[in-house]
């Protein structure tokens, strides 16, 4: 704790170790910045743009920007809130997210953010893209309808030799996250469970495991997302 630096988030004086990413530094100071693709202990990607903040008049992702001394960060202004809300709405529009029937409902970070931003209905027209479900593996169901391409599974679910179980296929709006069929056969139960937990939405499901937590005990049933950080 030698190189403590001072910075401001929405005018609130904060202190953190220099070189930390803004999301972590804000969390240490009890300020919640929503994230979807970011995960503790994993190299940040800055893809979902939910954690966008305004620094020096520029929009930056707070999961990839380290704090510097005297930095002034704007995070909860009306403009930024509106931007984050429209990104959540876009994610709902560009996939097929039917929460009431989803196995991950109540533990889903995207759904929790929808509630957090009090989204009633997306302002954008639904696209209803045609996407499939891959259930060929013996352990895992990969539902492409719900995938938001956060890359968390690709980065975290690896075998002992460091090879990823998941990978991107195709490009542009045809991108899919797919499970390697050969490696999937060797997947053990613990890895499958971890993959399901690491997925922010309900795109990766362990077979025969759906709806295992009763309503009332799910992750975001009692507390909205981010309440473990907020002071």
């Amino acid at each position: 704790m030698s190189n403590l630096i001072k910075f401001k988030i929405d005018g609130v004086e904060c202190m953190a170790e220099g070189g930390k990413f803004i999301v972590e530094a804000a969390a240490e100071n009890g300020i919640y910045i929503p994230t979807l693709c970011n995960m503790k202990g994993v190299k940040p990607k800055g893809a979902c743009r939910i954690c966008s903040v305004r620094i020096n008049g520029r929009l930056m992702t707070s999961c990839t920007t380290p704090v510097t001394d005297g930095m002034e960060i704007e995070s909860e202004s009306e403009e930024i809130r509106e931007l984050r809300r429209s990104i959540v709405e876009l994610l709902f529009v560009s996939g097929n997210h039917f929460c009431p029937a989803c196995e991950k409902s109540g533990s889903c970070e995207l759904q929790a953010l929808g509630y957090y931003y009090q989204m009633m209905v997306p302002r954008f027209p639904y696209e209803f893209p045609q996407k499939g479900v891959d259930a060929t593996s013996s352990k895992i169901i990969k539902d492409q309808n719900r995938c938001i391409f956060c890359k968390r599974c690709i980065k975290t679910i690896k075998d002992e030799e460091g090879r990823s179980f998941f990978a991107f296929r195709n490009r542009g709006h045809r991108t899919e996250v797919v499970l390697d069929p050969v490696m999937a056969e060797k997947m053990d139960d613990a890895t499958a469970q971890l993959a399901m937990e690491n997925c922010p939405v309900g795109s990766i499901l362990v077979k025969e495991k759906g709806f295992d937590k009763p309503i009332g005990t799910r992750k975001f049933d009692k507390q909205p997302i981010g309440s473990d950080i907020k002071l």
Binding site: S52, L59, T61, L83, S86, I87, L90, F124
Partner: peptide
């Protein structure tokens, strides 16, 4: 109006 308003979201693009 929507087109103009929605284009602001792309400012946050990577």
């Amino acid at each position: 109006k929507d087109l103009k308003e929605w284009s602001k979201v792309l400012n946050a693009s990577r």
